[in-house]
Design a protein around this nucleic acid. Structure first.
Lengths: 203, 203
DNA sequence: TTACCACTTAACCAACCAGTCAACTAAACA
DNA sequence: TGTTTAGTTGACTGGTTGGTTAAGTGGTAA
């Protein structure tokens, strides 16, 4: 009963875009509504607050992201290929966003998490959950790679955390410099951390 | 002539504190004035805008930080001791801030830089300058360590960038998790990246 | 065909935002 | 001691903030 609408989806996507390009603090409800072509009353019909929309937008964005993660880290692939695909996807996404918005955007979860700090408990809980999930993909691939003997990582969990922090740090660096070429070193950096002399892909 | 005042310094410190604990966006001129116990009129007597104060506060905070960097990375010390002192200082600072504000704050320049992205050119120029300067300390110590043969870093510049991105990523991680213990792995992580089996300090 | 209700619309609110200003105060120096 | 002037004060502005409300509109399902 009643009419249908895609305003909810348009709001989710506008919010994600604005938070990613700018920040949570710099994104106002009016801006979101304008971008989504939705009137303010409709906004509050679908979401009870700006915070609630932000949470839903992160959740929504993550779901799409996880599909790509599942593909990149498919257990059907050799572990080194998984890692290589992950890096390729990551860079491709940044290239796409730079083409779209003229800026290197980095990782939205890390950027948003840094911004709000531990100021908002519920918010932070969601972000921490996603980041922990992300880390698991890396850890599993590195553990498998170690088991195959193609990588030196007796403590796969510790190694994954290093790779993860490094990649997030580098993404933030690229965002601050607004320079895609900074990401060129990601491939070699991960190789270095994992002690791979040759290509990630075995010949 | 005319009276003197330390209101300028109080404003600089209040701004630094509020930006570091929260964010630029969440910090209002009223908050700054309240924290610094300065009336708004006085604020605009010393600084022409909130932006201008933020820039001055970063500059002011960096100057104090650089004194500690110069001490930690003193060429009089063996390169590995420099790196160890750097990590010790970094952690000590985070411990101090957590005791003071109840939160792990991470690196203010990286956090602020991520927040404003490339949206504010002048802002970003200052932040990039500081980060580039910071990187030089690491690079020099790693190059010296390699020359002494105590570290495996034929490309000291590349290695320094990895260590730097890793440390910034880890700091952001600790901020998001609001957990000091995350920083415990910094020591081992840097050792791993630099290929040091034993303690950083030679026996 | 009609009744219901999910959705839409625009006007509205109090609080807050960055920034202005003119009158005022007191410390430093001659 | 008197003059200068850097620093102080509080009231003010116009615009924006997140959020509310009440009256409508039109698609859907019975």
């Amino acid at each position: 009963m009643g009419r249908t609408s895609d305003a909810r989806e348009r709001l989710l996507e506008a919010m994600m875009e604005l938070i990613w390009v700018g920040s949570f603090g710099s994104t106002s409800v009016d801006h979101i509504c304008e971008r989504a072509e939705v009137k303010k009353g409709s906004f509050y019909h679908f979401f009870e607050s700006k915070h609630a929309l932000a949470m839903a937008a992160i959740e929504h964005g993550w779901d799409a992201f996880q599909v790509r993660l599942d593909k990149a880290f498919s257990v059907s692939l050799p572990p080194l290929v998984r890692l290589e695909t992950w890096i390729k996807q990551l860079i491709a996404e940044q290239v796409e966003m730079k083409a779209k918005h003229g800026r290197v955007l980095g990782c939205p979860i890390h950027t948003l998490g840094s911004e709000v700090g531990a100021m908002d408990d519920i918010f932070q809980k969601v972000l921490k959950g996603k980041l922990a999930l992300y880390l698991r993909y890396l850890e599993s691939a590195i553990r498998d790679a170690h088991a195959e003997g193609v990588v030196q990582a007796p403590d796969a969990s510790a190694k994954a955390k290093i790779v993860f922090s490094y990649s997030e740090g580098l993404l933030a660096h690229a965002r601050i410099w607004n320079d895609l070429s900074i990401l060129d070193s990601l491939y070699d950096g991960v190789k270095d951390i994992l002690r791979l002399d040759n290509s990630l892909i075995p010949a």
